[in-house]
Amino acid sequence: MKRSGSDSRLRAVAIALAGLLLGLIAWQIAGQRDPVLLATPVRSFEALVAMVGDGTLPAALLDTGLLFLVGLAAAIVGGVGYGLALSRSRMLRGSTGWLVFALQSVPIVALAPLILAAFGFGFGAKTLVVFLSAVFPILINTAEGAKHAPKTLLEVARVHRSGEWPLWRDVLVPHTLPYAMSGIRQGIAMAFVGTFIAEFFLQATGIGGLLLSASARFDSATVLGLTVLVSVIAALLMGLGRRLEKAFAPWREGSTE
């Protein structure tokens, strides 16, 4: 694909843009036919602009962003830390490794009412939801990566009489980093989901809160505009995650797939 030149890539982008434009036109026409259920793109855009004007949208974005970032940061610290610990300690692995895999399959959405009942709807409780959503992919990827540290390289380290700390510096950490990064990439997506769980089911704040209240008012223009905005942010986050993943492994061949 890469070799096929900039011409075909340009064409691909053009076709994708044309597809988007077609979609927008279809949306506009449909919206004009049924203005109650389906707001037109123009009206949705106007709704977003109005919310920027009165400051609600920036404030909500800030709210959501803060929750997302704090929860994600906690998940990265916890996930990478415990993942590394799991890989080096037989005892921890044998005793809690399977628990991690069991907990991982608990749907966090379903836990939300319990968390609400137990911890309320403060920032801490909401952060907990984001943390729980994002921590498992990070933890599991890190542990898997560290576990598969190549045997030859461990031997190289031993032949050179490496101590434990240089072994981490030269072998374990650089080997595990890309795995942790792909865990973090998945964690970013999950943290975003977790942010909405928190905002929908604990306390209606941020973008989630705006979506809920607009939906309750049957304000389809606002809901549609926000939904598209959310999907754009999600796609950007995913792209950012992939960038991060690549950036931390310059020694890998061009395509990491």
Binding site: L211, T227, V230
Partner: peptide, 9 residues
């Protein structure tokens, strides 16, 4: 990429 949750409203 989008959380399906956000589509519910």
């Amino acid at each position: 990429a989008m959380p399906m949750l956000a589509i519910v409203p």
